[in-house]
């Protein structure tokens, strides 16, 4: 078997910024979920964002994909500000920025066979049924899922399988940016490793630019080249993985590191 060697991300990440957030702010009634958050995602890199509950990480993920509207700020995708666009103008961008949800049970329609769920992406793209079928089987092969599950309902799949389908669906539009919001949080420890390794491989094979969000610092450091730390809606620290781990500046980052060393 031997040990697998992999090249460290962001080895081939260019310096071209593909997605940029500028001063994003979001309030829910009296609660400020995001405070003036700015960050940039470079082409080909995996950017990790670590934060606890209440840090605003999920809100940020949804704001970046325009699932939620920010109160103020800009979202630049390949130079174009998509924050203010109307739904109809947003259509061409929708498929280029994809999302992996945390809870695979909520992310899959319980009353729909997996086949239909995966087909939706192709249907929306106007692809013929035949082409869609072959696309789907390639996806499943790529993700290590047996094709027999296409005719099953989500309730009959394991947690790991469901999450792979969620990832497959996200990849079916051949996005350039993938935002993963706690993709392994509801999975068992050993399955988490499977999914993380899968994401690494996909990143490498497809040249995706990824934002990986998690409360688990170890998972974030495993995947990411650069890491940002979120706390109470603010980005308190951001830097290369090594410098965050070996030379953290912010006291909160230090606290997080301390609690991850078990």
């Amino acid at each position: 078997m031997g040990r697998n060697r992999f090249w460290r991300a962001p080895l081939f990440a260019s310096m071209r910024v593909i997605l940029e957030a500028k001063a994003l702010t979001k309030r829910f009634g009296g609660l400020t979920a995001l405070r003036d958050v700015s960050l940039d995602l470079r082409e080909g890199e995996i950017l990790g964002l670590v934060g606890e509950s209440g840090s605003g990480k999920s809100t940020l993920a949804r704001v970046l994909t325009r699932l939620i509207e920010a109160d103020s700020g800009q979202i630049l995708f390949e130079g174009t500000d998509i924050a203010g666009l109307r739904e109809s103008q947003l259509r061409p961008f929708r498929r280029k920025i994809q999302f992996i949800f945390q809870d695979p049970d909520a992310a899959l329609n319980p009353r729909q066979k997996i086949r239909t769920t995966l087909w939706r992406a192709y249907q929306a793209g106007g692809v013929s049924r035949a082409k869609a079928e072959s696309g789907i089987s390639r996806l499943l092969e790529n993700l290590g899922v047996e094709s027999g599950i296409l005719d099953r309902y989500p309730a009959h799949l394991s947690g790991g399988q469901k999450q792979r389908i969620v990832i497959a669906r996200a990849l079916s539009t051949q996005p350039s940016v993938l935002i993963a919001d706690e993709p392994t949080a509801s999975l068992d420890a050993s399955i988490q490793v499977q999914v993380l390794n899968l994401l690494r491989r996909l990143h490498r094979d497809h040249g995706l630019s990824m934002i990986f969000i998690s409360h688990d610092l170890r998972a974030v450091t495993y995947l990411s080249g650069r890491i940002g730390v979120l706390r109470w809606g603010r980005l308190v620290e951001m830097g290369e993985r090594t410098s965050i781990l070996e030379n953290p500046q912010h006291p909160y980052t230090k606290e997080l590191l301390k609690n991850s060393r078990i």
């Binding site: 929708r94 498929r95 949800f101 319980p110 249907q123």
Partner: peptide
């Protein structure tokens, strides 16, 4: 629901979201 939001992200038409995704859960 997340699975409906996922469809929005895929660019699925509203009519299909309503009758293909939401309706089966209402039956």
């Amino acid at each position: 629901a997340d699975f409906v939001l996922a469809c929005r992200l895929l660019g699925v038409r509203r009519r299909i979201v309503l009758f293909g995704e939401i309706f089966p859960n209402v039956i």
